[in-house]
């Protein structure tokens, strides 16, 4: 069975065709429980998410700020396993038909078995992986399996990346390029850094892949601002934070709806 890279590409193209950016939402699997996590993700899709990122919780999330660290912690203490992450992907894709990516640090994928993980993710209907701590230079084994199983390889680039790195990374990736809006870890910020627009423009010069921007985006205004120059707007911590603070899926849906309106503004 082949993965849903094509669906991801088509979804981003359709949003572009409609003259807007896609909304990409992130929630970790198993947070607060596996079933409640699935229900939360389904609520974001109902409220307008176009592409789903499912986080694979990790003991050492070095690129995440306190909000996602806390959610990962809750999920791991609840005993979340990779099988639960894959079930989350399967159920969300089956129920919505949307492209679903897994975001994971490299060690769990490597330890689970790169071929096995790629095969099972494709079987679950997954569209690919975002691997934030896997640089292109170490990514050969993953990319071979991703290609064999029809999965996207989404690399995260940052304002500090050189032009040569950007070109190399974009050439090695598929689906889209994840442009980090700022230098730093995940978490809401008061304003969108102007580095995001600059980085997006630099990427446009070296790739035809869609450019989606994430990190620090937390409300409709910021989403609208980023949608003005990017193909996709990625929101994670703000959604996780809403669930952490309120435990209320209605509040989560409300925020997602505002963000969905933002990318259409």
């Amino acid at each position: 069975m082949t993965g849903n890279l094509r669906l991801l590409t088509d979804t981003l193209a359709a949003a572009k065709h409609a003259g807007r950016a896609a909304l990409i939402t992130y929630l970790p699997a198993g947070f607060p429980t596996v079933d409640d996590g699935i229900a939360a993700i389904l609520a974001t899709v109902d409220a307008g998410a176009d592409v789903i990122e499912v986080g694979l919780p990790h003991s050492d999330p070095v690129l995440d700020g306190p909000v996602i660290q806390t959610a990962d912690d809750i999920a791991l203490r609840g005993g979340v396993r990779i099988a639960d992450v894959l079930r989350t992907v399967r159920e969300v894709h089956a129920a919505t038909g949307k492209p679903v990516l897994v975001m994971s640090y490299w060690n769990p994928v490597s330890r689970y078995g790169v071929e096995r993980f790629a095969r099972e993710l494709a079987e679950a209907g997954g569209a690919g992986c975002v691997l934030p701590d896997l640089p292109v230079s170490e990514s050969g084994p993953w990319r071979r399996q991703a290609e064999a199983h029809g999965l996207a390889t989404v690399f995260v680039v940052a304002p500090s990346s050189t032009d040569a790195h950007l070109a190399e990374t974009a050439a090695a990736g598929s689906g889209f390029v994840y442009a980090s809006a700022l230098m730093g870890v995940t978490g809401a910020r008061a304003a969108v850094d102007e580095a995001a627009a600059v980085l997006t423009a630099r990427l446009r010069a070296v790739t035809d892949l869609p450019v989606c921007v994430g990190m620090g985006i937390s409300d409709a205004d910021q989403a609208a601002q980023v949608a003005g120059f990017a193909d996709g707007v990625i929101v994670g911590s703000a959604l996780v934070s809403t669930l952490l603070d309120t435990g209320d899926r209605a509040a989560l849906a409300r925020l997602t709806g505002e963000l969905a309106a933002g990318v259409r503004a």
Partner: peptide
């Protein structure tokens, strides 16, 4: 060994 760092740290 190797260099398993995010792209944001590659330049540094």
């Amino acid at each position: 060994g190797g260099q398993f760092v995010p792209q944001a740290l590659v330049a540094a």
